[in-house]
Amino acid sequence: MGIDRRKFFKVSGLTALGLAGGSVSKVFSRETPYGDSVQTRTWGTEPPKGPLTAQRWAMVIDLRKCHEQPDCNDCVAACHSTHNVPDWGNPKDEVKWIWKESFEHAFHDQEHPYQQESLKYLPALVLCNHCDNPPCVRVCPTGATWKRDKDGIVMMDWHRCIGCRYCVVACPYGSRSFNWRDPRPKIQKIEPDFPTRSRGVVEKCTFCEERLARGMLPACVEACKYGAMHFGDLEDADSNVRKLLSERYTIRRKPGLGTNPEVYYIV
């Protein structure tokens, strides 16, 4: 089943997972006010085997759905607890992989003072864009961050990073965090399956490559109950993300810089 299965996964994240697993999981669907369906899935006894693969992973975030759930923080919580992200409680030392930013900040160059109220205060989920032309990778003097050839994920090696923070300076989206102090005491509950970091290195979202390798979707996507996050293969014309991109009006952050962000937003 190897090839078929992998190809199947490429088609789409959630739906494929649910169906391919068969006995593994159940899919629930419901209609949303926007006419598209939301699927949630529960794991059965064992997760599907074999990695999820793609030629170019990408994410589509539906901000309207986030906006309907102003108190929802599930994706952020899921990501941060899965990845041992410390909680410093102050903006100076803060480490974060995914978070809610105001529309005005997230789309700095696309807002105007008379914008519809909903948009103005729209919390936009932001994370590393896994840029196709990532400036952070270009500037790193040690190769501690690099773009993976097989699927475009921008990776981090916390053991090689010298903590020069050049990548933090070069990222136009503020997606990278530096460990100003030892993060371990500030991790609420250490997740043994994932490494903790030491002080003095940079970290960021990795599109959950460790979960993809075990056949699981990114933690944030999995945690989202409202179908606001879609993850799939950009190179596959039939994938969920390609479908959304061809049907919806989507924007990217700072497109003029030529970084080619691979996180798209439906507004």
């Binding site: 990778v137 270009r138 040690t142 010298i162 530096f178 002080r199 290195v201």
Partner: peptide, 26 residues
């Protein structure tokens, strides 16, 4: 003194990265 991991600075020489201006500056 600005490095987060100062004793790993040798990595700049162990993994020379010509796309980085920091490499050329060194």
């Amino acid at each position: 003194v600005d490095m987060g991991q100062p004793f790993r600075i040798v990595n700049v020489f162990l993994y020379p990265s010509p796309t980085s201006m920091m490499f050329w500056d060194t």
